[in-house]
Simulated assay, not measured.
Amino acid sequence: MPATSFLETAQGRRIAYHKSDGQGPCVVFLGGLKSDMEGTKAVHLEAWAKARGQAFLRFDYSGHGESSGTFEEGCIGDWHEDTLEAVAHLTDGDIVPVGSSMGGWQALLLAREVPERIKGMVTIAAAPDFTEDGYWANFTDAQKAELEAQGYVELPSDYMEPYHVSKRMIEDGRQRLVLRSPLFLPFRTRCLQGTADTAVSTGTALRLLDHAACADMRLTLVKDADHRFSDEACLTMIEDAVLDILSGD
């Protein structure tokens, strides 16, 4: 196993990453909330890319995995900065972001910031605007009061320990929303979504499909697949979606 490398960012963060050299475009895996670059999808896609001789990058956002900081201090904007820094300093030329869950939101933010760098995009259970539509919209009055009083609330998760949701995450998320204003994706986009996903609904996937301005955007719904989307069949679908992007003109 190659040793982890680190990138010192302009914001003073230390971002852990693994980069595989190869032909471009570079496939960049963007993980989900509280996930890290050792997750099944990231590691599998890296092995697939290496076998193809394709350049590949996976990294940990600040407060995740081996990177500096704590999750509780982070927010969507911080992780967007981490993504921009990783792309700017660790890749050259065209890239293919593969965004899982919160990483799907990060991929869409990346599309707004550097669309000229993106060859095409793959999302897996993309969760754009979840701090507003998933968290804030479903907070009870008691939770909103708790958020204001102590600065955070704890929310249960079907997939890991409870989420620590800070007031900063909610307020920052409102500055990063992508489904409330025009969203231009001037490249081929492939979206994958499981129908048994209890973290991100098919409604969110359909909303993104309807909202985005994209000449070549497809959504694939996978019956009974859950939010992990990491069994053998799902991993093969991710490979095929990335290959579809790479083979495009």
Rank of each mutant, 00 (worst) to 15 (best):
L209M: 09
A55K: 11
D92W: 04
A213G: 00
G39N: 13
Y17C: 03
E116Y: 09
L179N: 09
T70H: 11
K144M: 10
L235K: 09
T40Y: 06
F139D: 00
V178L: 04
V122G: 12
K19E: 07
S230Q: 14
P128S: 05
G120T: 08
L243Q: 10
S157F: 14
D231G: 06
F229T: 05
A86T: 14
D249T: 03
P115M: 13
D129Y: 06
F56Y: 15
V114A: 14
L179G: 04
W136E: 15
Q106Y: 02
S101K: 13
A107T: 09
E8V: 08
F139A: 00
S68V: 09
Y61G: 02
G63I: 01
A10D: 13
E116F: 10
R174W: 14
K119T: 11
R188F: 05
L246T: 04
D94T: 03
A213N: 01
D240Q: 15
E239I: 02
R174K: 15
K19G: 07
E239K: 03
E148I: 04
T195S: 15
H18T: 14
F56V: 01
G248E: 08
L7F: 12
M1L: 03
K34F: 03
R112S: 03
P156S: 15
A42V: 11
K167D: 04
L209G: 01
G99I: 05
S20M: 08
I124A: 11
D141Y: 03
